[in-house]
Design a binder for these strands. Structure first.
Length: 364
DNA sequence: AACGCAGGCAACCGCGTCGAA
DNA sequence: TTTCGACGCGGTTGCCTGCGT
């Protein structure tokens, strides 16, 4: 079994620290530094194990520790970083000066986690819980009768999907996008995150649980989030994007950001198809233009099997195909990784841009 | 006022990692 | 290359406090 607890021997004290013990520890470290934690308690005259001293110092006595409530900005940062890093509390704490990993962990478990759960968001994946979103019901009818494929259903603007959840999903993705930027930027700075490779190699691999969906019926739909300044919980309707955004979040592949894109709000002028807009709830400014002739490749033709997946599945596509004027909503119909694309179903299908409409004030 | 319950937080436990021998 | 010790991290526990009945 594991190593015996370090405090079991020699009758070392456990439990809450007394002010006298605190003072001894502070005095010693201020004079000598902590040095070896193992020898510190003996030198400092403390009947504690070194581990206990280290914990007490790093979590409570350290002079640079910030006390008190977490600010909204701190909370938002925690959520964003958690969406990227998962339960890497020390890495998250490294981005929040004055906050300890223990404090952040406690705050997450007692406040943020519960709130996300109340909102129907899985605090592990940062996605709307799958038991609340039934994707099979969205896609199944199209499989046996492709001519009836309803893009609005595919895009998740159907009432059967909880619109509030979709909004949350959108905002979560926005948050993730920001975090991705944040992390990527941080990674360019020496000394950032102690554990960067996972992020560096694959910005969204932190969504490990979501990878379970890779083999599900849900198409592999990467997307690009493009809102650079959106706060975490906005309230503007972004329903068209939301469902696909969620799909993206769940089955994200390595095209979260186009390679070498420094910011995810940079959308290339090519390889995108704007989404049609159907839903009256969708913002009017995103519905202002009719479909264009180029849409034909995206509409559902009545050919042999009705639905032509070629623009979706093909590995190369030409210029952008505009379905409406929305500058914010795109479908990426191209791909760059041939083998992967062929093997994955509809990968790189969507590439969304989320309007920068979100407002943080209501959550203050 | 007394009791029970839930939430918050400090501290502990055990495992993983890393570096030195 | 292997072993071992120290440290760090994440998960869990248990105590304290506040609130409702």
């Amino acid at each position: 079994m594991g190593r015996a607890p370090c405090c079991d021997k020699n009758g070392l004290k456990k439990g809450p620290w007394t002010p006298e013990e605190d003072q001894k520890l502070i005095d010693y470290i201020q004079k000598h530094g902590h040095g070896s934690w193992r020898t510190l308690p003996k030198n400092a005259g403390l009947a504690r194990c070194g581990k206990s001293c280290r914990l007490r110092w790093t979590n409570y006595l350290r002079p640079d520790i910030k006390r008190g409530r977490f600010s909204f900005e701190e909370e938002e940062t925690i959520i964003q970083l958690h969406s990227i890093l998962g339960n890497k509390w020390s890495a998250i704490a490294a981005r929040l000066p004055g906050r300890t990993d223990n404090e952040i962990k406690n705050y997450w478990n007692t406040h943020i986690r519960k709130r996300l759960l109340r909102m129907g968001i899985d605090p592990v994946t940062h996605s709307p819980r799958l038991d609340l979103l039934d994707f099979s019901s969205l896609l199944a009818p199209s499989l046996y009768n492709p001519t009836q494929l309803d893009v609005s259903r595919l895009l998740g603007i159907e009432p059967l999907v909880n619109t509030e959840l979709l909004r949350i999903a959108t905002n979560l993705l926005t948050s993730q996008c920001q975090s991705s930027n944040l992390v990527n930027q941080s990674l360019q700075q020496p000394g950032s995150f102690s554990n960067p490779p996972q992020v560096q190699d694959h910005p969204l691999t932190a969504f490990q649980p979501q990878q379970q969906l890779q083999n599900s019926i849900v198409p592999d739909i990467p997307a690009t989030c493009t809102t650079s300044n959106a706060p975490f919980f906005g309230d503007q309707p972004q329903l068209v994007q939301a469902n696909a955004v969620h799909l993206q979040a769940d089955v994200q592949t390595n095209s979260w950001q186009a390679a070498s894109q420094p910011q995810c709000d940079v959308i290339p002028d090519q390889n995108y198809v704007q989404l049609p807009t159907f839903n009256p709830q969708y913002p009017q400014h995103l519905m202002s233009q009719p479909l264009t002739a180029d849409n034909q490749s995206f509409q559902m033709p009545n050919n042999n099997h009705g639905f032509d997946f070629s623009p979706v599945l093909s590995t190369t596509t030409s210029s952008p195909t505009q379905l409406n004027s929305s500058p914010s909503t795109y479908i990426n119909s191209s791909s760059t990784e041939d083998d992967y694309e062929r093997d994955s179903y509809c990968s790189n299908l969507f590439n969304f841009q989320i309007p920068d409409l979100l407002d943080v004030s209501e959550f203050m």
